[in-house]
Computed example of a mutant assay.
Amino acid sequence: MAGASGFLGTRLVDLLVADGHQVTRLVRRPPRAVDERQWSPSAAQLDPALVAESDAVVNLAGAGVGDRRWNDRYKQLIRSSRVDTTSTLATTIAGLPAADRPEVLVNSSAIGWYGNTGDRVVEEDAPAGEGFLADVSRVWEAATRPAEDAGVRVVRLRTGLPLHRDGGLLKPQLLPFRLGIAGRLGSGRQWIPWISMTDWLNATTFLLARADLAGPVNVVGPAPVTNAEFTRELARQLNRPAVIPIPTLALKVALGGFAQEALTSTRVLPGVLNRAAFSFRHPDLPTALHAALHD
């Protein structure tokens, strides 16, 4: 697994190990634990023997899109941290003898693929949209092609916004909401494709095991909401007011290039998961937020 130390990766490793799997974590620094192995995706360096020993490869690596203000240098890091890791893994897989290749590559992507869909509902068959994250997602997913061309099942996780109090979309919002100085972003009409952390983990392990599923998969909850609806529900669960909207201009000053993406409306449904009869533990926002705040 690449990206095993991140917000999602640490939880996925714990779940897989608890289920009896052995996970080898790829790290860029010298290994400090028995389950770590070093690689250098920026230099396209990965020991093929590590991949040949694996039944599955999971790639969750990538610099956080909401971790800091965007400038040109950070935008390049967002792109390269995704494309370099994916390309290195896919090329290494393709270079192995057929008998030594893993059964599946589960590779991160994002709902940013769709760009701004407004109020239009989209599933996995929708084309790539416009904007920086859509462009990144396009080349990110294309980097998996060598593994796919080599006959390996490739699943592209178009992940939405996993909800958990310790990171992601939710963590930076908790303090201002608890202080009563939060509110909707911009107009609040933009759609948010959330998913509970439990459902993201279960969906990922579900996709690892389902040999009949491949290609892009929207890993999002079945009931997207607008930013205004999300704001009201979070405020209700925290028992705090949320009456101070954040103007678009203030977002642009604070977030730089990320502001436009934060205001993007992406109304995405989990078409593949629904047709595969995946069972969501938290199918609506109130239950997902309650789990994110308390479980």
Rank of each mutant, 00 (worst) to 15 (best):
A2L: 12
S5G: 13
G6Y: 04
T10R: 15
D14N: 11
V17I: 14
H21C: 08
R29F: 07
P31V: 04
R32C: 06
V34Y: 02
R37C: 11
W39F: 13
A43P: 03
A44Y: 10
Q45N: 13
L46H: 01
D47I: 13
P48F: 07
A49I: 04
A49H: 12
V51D: 09
A61L: 04
A61I: 03
A63D: 03
G64R: 05
G66K: 04
R68N: 12
R69E: 03
W70N: 09
K75Y: 12
K75M: 12
Q76P: 02
T88G: 10
L89A: 09
A90W: 09
L96F: 02
A99P: 00
D100I: 11
L105D: 08
V106E: 01
V106H: 07
V122D: 02
E124Q: 08
V139W: 01
E141K: 04
P146G: 04
A147G: 13
E148G: 14
V152T: 11
R156Q: 15
H164S: 14
G168C: 04
L170W: 03
K171Q: 15
A182D: 01
G183C: 08
G188P: 04
W191G: 08
W191S: 06
M197A: 10
D199L: 06
L201D: 06
T204S: 13
T205N: 10
L207V: 10
A209L: 11
A211C: 06
N218Y: 02
V219M: 02
A223K: 15
V225P: 00
A228S: 14
E229I: 13
F230G: 05
E233M: 07
I244Q: 09
I244P: 05
I244G: 03
L249M: 12
V253S: 10
A254K: 05
Q260D: 15
T266Q: 15
A277P: 00
H282R: 03
P283A: 12
D284C: 09
P286D: 01
P286E: 00
H290P: 05
